[in-house]
Design a binder for these strands. Structure first.
Length: 587
RNA sequence: GGUCCCGUAGCUCAAUGGAUAGAGCAACUGCCUUCUAAGCAGUAGGUUGCUGGUUCGACCCCAGCCGGGAUCACCA
């Protein structure tokens, strides 16, 4: 039984004993400025007791103190009844946790979930926004795995469409057969270069056409380079061998580049879906829906869904020329996924909040098509990452490149280590610290909130950051090494230890770790885990700084403190791993 | 204009309807002969955008305003 359960039981019997019937008891963690760990809010009980909140609290407190040995003392402040639980309760809880090597992970619950993240276009390298997306999706997947789900990590790769044709067009015109090898550039960056080049020429051409008297809309259509890209898209749909070849080659470059980026990021996928392989299925399903009357056709041949009755708009699903749009292929992809994994209990789409409307429509369409699993689909919508200069715009060159940023973070970590005079910081350690700082920075904020990334200030290693937490872990590991050198055996259980307030607080925090993971999972919010890890590290540092562990004379207490430290390090490592962040042994 | 999200210390962020709204950064003051100072302790910093309402109790729920953002394409 956890301390929570013990107290709840004691409280329930006290309330029944005092007032003759049970009531809903509101127990919450005690505000740190008061003594105790658990607080009963007494206001709701005044109706039952017929007394003031203070008196009610006092009555209940006395009854609990007499009726059980769970509580060692209590105090009442206003209507709040604060309990100090007995050391016996805490140390037995600690023994329980200590004896459970898999504390924090739940046994398999037989459920399956699919988490989609990343899902980039294949025409340019990954940027800061993708980093938030990937870290978020990866962490949510890890958190669900921790609570017992079987997790399928997937992405849909937007490998076809006008965007890649733009890069292809520019490469064909100006590339001189350049390859990543010949240019010594990562493939995704090379393809991105031509995407930018396309845009530059496109702008020049439309400007000239406008000067010669064309309307803006007309000029945009008539620009020769755009006409080339559109022609390539049509050739692609007609399976033109030469175009397919070029398309495959350039996508191949991108995949190779992405692969390196993902590897450094520490994310991976169990299965990849490609738009080029799902869009036709989507088209089929839309045509089926047309037959069954879910959709309708306009005079020009385009196919639409009418969602006005649901408070939404009409939405095009097939263009008048029969080609599919984004929505079409998303319908296909969703159906394919539930075909591939019929027993999944949920599908999470990690996609920015600018697509909220899109997913609302998608899920509604799937429901209208009669797929019961439509309600299992969830859009994990997250806010944009803004720069001090405003929104990132790839066309204006204000994007923060993922590869560059990761490299900068690792360099910054190396520099920091050097300035602090750390001994022999290994490359692996710098990598863990630099990337850890970046991941933590992006994950500690509630996903649905927009966040600001200031390149000058965000590379920070003190305070509420991953390096702070990692450092706490490394310090504990140093303690453990010392204990092992001295052949101290700190496994096993402890009793009769007189606990310091900081030790009680630590055990209490550790004890709440499993429910923290559950909370993070149900809210799809790794920030809950991040904030917990920070709280735990902070609490431990206070303990570390007030108690001299190896200076302790009592052997049992010494061993207990080492065991408590070891347990803290273990949970820090576990929690950080859920965020995709490693913890070095030394730093 | 319709729909949705956000507004908390100078800055970046916390706070299952509960106590005197908390951290970090930046500023200032202390603490390394000690288990790692990427640390700890302290000072200062607030009308939680505004106005009402519900409640014993509201940053949180409701209504209205103000400010910021997203979205409403035969784009993705």
């Amino acid at each position: 039984m956890t301390p929570d359960d013990l107290l709840k039981e004691a409280l329930e019997s006290a309330v029944v004993g005092l007032f003759g019937k049970s009531a809903d008891l509101q127990i919450q963690p005690t505000n740190p400025q008061f003594e105790g760990s658990h607080t009963l809010v007494c206001f709701p009980l005044t109706k039952l007791s017929g007394k003031s909140p203070e008196e009610t609290g006092k009555l209940i407190g006395e009854a609990v103190l007499k009726g059980s040995d769970t509580v060692s003392s209590f105090n009442v402040v206003k209507g709040f009844l604060n309990f100090v639980l007995s050391d016996k309760v805490w140390s037995s809880r600690f023994n329980q946790i200590n004896a459970n090597p898999s504390f924090g992970t739940f046994s398999p619950n037989g459920k399956e979930i699919m988490v989609e993240y990343s899902s980039p276009n294949t025409n340019k390298p990954l940027h800061l926004g993708h980093l938030r997306n990937n870290f978020l999706g990866f962490a949510v997947a890890e958190i669900y795995r921790a609570i017992g789900y079987k997790v399928h990590r997937v992405q849909i790769i937007n490998d076809r469409g006008i965007h890649i044709c733009k890069s292809m067009a520019a490469w064909k015109l100006f590339g001189n057969a350049e390859t990543p090898a010949s240019a010594s550039v990562k493939g995704d960056h090379l393809v991105g270069k031509y995407y930018v080049l396309f845009d530059r020429h496109y702008k020049e051409q439309t400007a000239e056409l406008e000067k010669s008297g064309l309307a803006k809309e007309q000029a945009e259509k008539e620009a020769p380079i755009m006409k080339l890209a559109v022609a390539m898209l049509q050739q692609w749909e007609n399976r033109d061998p030469e175009i397919l070849q070029l398309w495959q080659t350039m996508n191949g470059w991108v995949y190779e580049g992405f692969g390196k980026t993902y590897e450094r990021m520490g994310v991976s996928f169990d299965k990849l879906y490609y738009e080029s392989e799902t869009y036709l299925l989507g088209k089929e399903e839309v045509l089926k829906g047309l037959e069954s009357g879910v959709f309708f056709k306009k005079e020009d041949g385009s196919v639409w869904v009418d969602l006005t009755a649901d408070g939404l708009d009409q939405k095009v699903l097939l263009r008048s020329d029969g080609t599919s749009v984004y929505m079409t292929q998303d319908i296909g992809t969703a159906i394919l996924r539930f075909r591939d994994f019929p027993s999944i209990d949920g599908q999470v789409y990690t996609v920015g909040n600018e697509q909220e409307y899109h997913f609302k429509v998608l899920f509604l369409i799937l429901k209208k098509l009669g797929f019961k699993w439509a309600e299992k689909c969830f859009h994990l919508s997250y806010g944009m990452v803004d720069l001090p200069t405003g929104k990132m715009k790839s066309r204006e060159g204000t994007v923060v490149d993922a590869d560059d940023l990761m490299e900068e973070m690792v360099q910054a970590a190396a520099k920091q280590s050097q300035e602090l005079g750390k001994a022999e910081p290994s490359e692996a350690t710098n990598e863990m610290i630099g990337l850890g700082a970046l991941k933590y920075f992006l994950l500690k904020v509630d996903p649905k909130k927009r966040m600001l990334f200031d390149p000058n200030e965000s590379i920070q290693m003190q305070g509420n950051t991953a390096p702070f937490i990692q450092y706490t872990h490394a310090r504990i590991r140093a303690l453990i090494r010392k204990a092992e050198e001295q052949n101290l055996n700190f496994s096993g259980s402890f009793s009769g230890i007189k606990l310091e307030p900081g030790e009680r607080a630590l055990i209490s925090l550790i004890s709440r770790y499993p429910e923290t993971i559950t909370l993070a999972a149900s809210g799809y919010s790794p920030s809950v885990v991040a904030n917990y890890a920070y709280e735990l590290a902070k609490e431990y540092n206070q303990f570390y700084q007030t108690v001299r562990i190896f200076g302790e004379q009592d052997n049992q207490t010494l061993l207990f403190r080492i065991a408590l430290s070891a347990q803290t390090a273990k949970i820090i490592r576990h929690a950080m791993a859920l965020l995709g962040i490693g913890c070095p042994e030394k730093m």
